[in-house]
Design a protein around this nucleic acid. Structure first.
Lengths: 225, 225
DNA sequence: ATATTGAAAATTGTCGACAATTTGTGGCGA
DNA sequence: TCGCCACAAATTGTCGACAATTTTCAATAT
């Protein structure tokens, strides 16, 4: 079950970057907090230069924001920011689904169907639920299936870590399991039918549903204050 | 006629970054060529550190590609790459138009209509043609009108320089002036009618037309070998 | 008490030198 | 002649120190 990218750290900056990204996404480094180069360099036992480079890369992912001569801060998570993110996902992953319907090979589509049915078995036998990992795997395959290198890079290296950060920190593990699963099935069917228009429409609706689901959840959370 | 972002260089890396970006986009630094840190640092009379940081930022824009312990190269321009770029533009700017129809203020829409009519006068009186600058300005305003900060950053800081690089180096100044102008008019009308669906559809078709136009041009160029 | 100024402390930006890795080159052996 | 290994040259990665800028805070004046 090899699936998504094993980006392996070759350089010291890579390690720092991956570690910081993990800590930021999982909230170990708080959202909105300041990133002190000195502090981090002592914490990770590396030079400031590698911390700087790591911070620069985190900025490319939109995980931190930098101001010249002032410093870098982890992005702050706002409901509006999350909605903006899902609008972008809708546009890009909709296009990815359209392209996947055109460019995925027959065997890739078969593998994708196989993934869904294995996930179906897991859910049915209640050995596990249809959780985030499965959802991610599904979306990754379609993104890769688009065969559009720029699009892939944008989503995999850029947006998805941000999305994960929101999910983890705002507690969006949530249900929406069986419905999401059905939506996935319909999307795959459109792809295997080589119907780009429908694949795009279904993917966009799928992401819209997620977005709405999250929006209501956010609203109810906010009222608990 | 103040319009798009005056990003002003505050630090030395900023200057290096802007300069290198300009030289890459305009082909002064050839596509596909290697970027030697040492060489550039002597050329710009700055330390290697600032060149490194500039290169990192260029990588964020997808203008250069880096491999660890090997170096950075300017991206190579391929017809496929350009088509991929336009697919992403179609998705993102389509969404931008949709959001602009929802979020632009009435005065912003009026300004946009004003821009179009002034451009119309220029074209009609043949004092100038409807060239790239005008087209860029139009697209910029709609992108900004989306009010989606992440989307704006992605397009303005990321994609547009790449698009410009392709346009400049593959000589896509081209005609398509009056038709593009009409398309712009229809898009603005949809926005002023607060019709997000139509605005998105028209923007996507507008970009598809550009893409097809460029594709045929590329094909004819390629046959000249 | 509040606002302003100015110096001190802390943080980021830049630099040159050293370490690690890759690349180029020549010689050796099959 | 071809391939392989070792050594040298060049390039990138990392480091600590210094410069420039921002922030802090206390002293002063209104």
């Amino acid at each position: 079950m090899m699936s998504f990218f094993d980006e392996q750290a070759v350089t010291s900056s890579d390690k720092a970057f991956f570690r910081m990204r993990k800590e930021i996404v999982e909230g170990e480094i708080a959202a909105g907090s300041k990133l002190s180069e000195m502090e981090l360099s002592t914490k990770y036992e590396v030079s400031r230069a590698v911390v700087r480079e790591a911070i620069n890369r985190l900025e490319s992912c939109h995980l931190v924001e930098r101001k010249a001569n002032v410093g870098a801060r982890v992005v702050t998570l706002t409901p509006e920011g999350l909605m903006e993110l899902y609008q972008i996902r809708e546009a890009l992953e909709g296009m990815a689904a359209r392209l996947a319907a055109q460019h995925m090979t027959d065997t890739e589509i078969q593998d994708l169907e196989g993934l869904l049915s294995s996930q179906f078995d897991e859910v049915k036998n209640q050995h596990s639920y249809y959780q985030e990992a499965g959802d991610l795997d599904f979306h990754y395959r379609i993104i890769l299936g688009s065969k559009n290198a720029s699009l892939i890079s944008m989503l995999v290296n850029g947006l998805y870590h941000l999305v994960r950060m929101y999910r983890v920190q705002l507690g969006m593990a949530g249900p929406r399991v069986t419905t999401a699963f059905d939506e996935h099935k319909h999307i795959v069917r459109a792809i295997s039918n080589r119907d780009p228009e429908l694949a795009e429409i279904l993917m966009r609706r799928h992401i819209q549903y997620s977005k709405n689901n999250i929006a209501t959840k956010l609203a109810s959370n906010q009222s608990h204050f």
